Simulated scan of single mutants.
Amino acid sequence: MQKSIKVLIVDDHQMFLDGLSSILVGDEQVEVVGVLTDARAVIDTLKDAPVDVVVTDVSMPHMDGIQLNAELKKRNIQAKVLVLTTHNDPDIIQKLIKGGVDGYLLKNAEKNELLTAIKTVATGGKHFSQEVQKKYTESLFSSATTSSTVQTALSKREKEILHLIVEEFTAQEIAEKLFISQHTVNTHRKNLLSKLGVKNTAGLVKQTILKGLLK
């Protein structure tokens, strides 16, 4: 007899927990071994009763799905994490994918896709709904386009100065290195702040790293 997939469901809405549990009970390959309304209780629960898949929402009080996924991965807990949520925000999707989440579905998914996702991640695969994949791809394209546009907008001299700012050179040191006046350096710095939409040097460094402007 095939071993059933043990599932723990985490969501702060009891009605959703009840509904999802009743859906999964109908599949002989899936066994719901527990439901939790507080993600903080997951770690201790898994110590006593390990599961194959944790199905979790994103927005929850105290600890959200992003934090839960990160905590499970950090502790090398073997349970796979399948996010089931109403959120299709690209930033959330990116954070979870970068965090190594095993699957991501929206709550409007059909029963068959949900069961397929659980079985896929339980056996070491990945499952992301088509809508989630589309949102993620679009966000990557948008980010790359923005980065390319900013790079094109920066002059050669601005890129040189930006590189030195990131390397923590002072305005005076940059002026001496590039054989220009400190006033000229400050003018370029103001232009960089404006083009990157930030207020200070820390913002310049952050945006340079995020947008990969010095690659």
Rank of each mutant, 00 (worst) to 15 (best):
S181R: 08
T187F: 09
K107D: 09
D27W: 03
K199N: 15
V83F: 02
L140E: 14
K95C: 00
T123F: 01
Q172K: 15
Q2I: 12
D91Q: 13
T146W: 10
V205F: 10
Q151L: 12
L178P: 02
I118G: 04
S22A: 12
N191M: 10
D44A: 14
K6S: 11
A39I: 11
S59Q: 14
E168V: 09
K47P: 03
S147A: 06
T149S: 01
H87E: 15
T86F: 12
S4C: 01
I209Y: 12
F179Q: 13
Q78N: 13
F179S: 14
R75Q: 14
K74S: 13
L68F: 07
S181V: 07
L196T: 07
S22N: 13
Y136S: 12
F169I: 11
D52R: 02
S148T: 09
N191L: 10
T145Q: 11
E110T: 10
I77A: 03
H127K: 11
A202F: 14
R40H: 11
E167C: 04
V33R: 12
L115P: 04
K211Y: 06
Q14V: 06
V7E: 06
K95R: 08
S139W: 10
V53G: 00
E176D: 15
A39S: 13
L204M: 09
E173M: 11
V55M: 01
V58Q: 08
D27C: 02
M60E: 06
Q14E: 05
T137F: 10
V83K: 01
L178V: 03
K177V: 04
D11H: 05
S194D: 10
G212C: 07
P50R: 04
R75L: 15
P61T: 14
G19N: 10
M63R: 04
V10I: 12
K126A: 03
Q14I: 01
L204Y: 08
M15K: 14
K195A: 05
L214H: 00
M15A: 13
E176I: 08
E160V: 05
V121R: 01
T116R: 08
K95S: 06
L214M: 11
G19V: 03
Q130M: 03
Q172F: 09
V198I: 06
M15P: 07
I93M: 05
Y136W: 12
L178K: 08
T86C: 11
T184K: 05
D52F: 02
V150W: 04
H13Q: 14
V58G: 08
N88R: 06
H87I: 15
E167Q: 15
K190H: 04
Q29M: 07
G124V: 02
N200E: 07
Y104Q: 02
R189F: 12
L154Y: 02
G125Q: 03
R75M: 09
L154S: 04
G100R: 14
H188E: 11
K135T: 07
L178C: 06
Q67R: 10
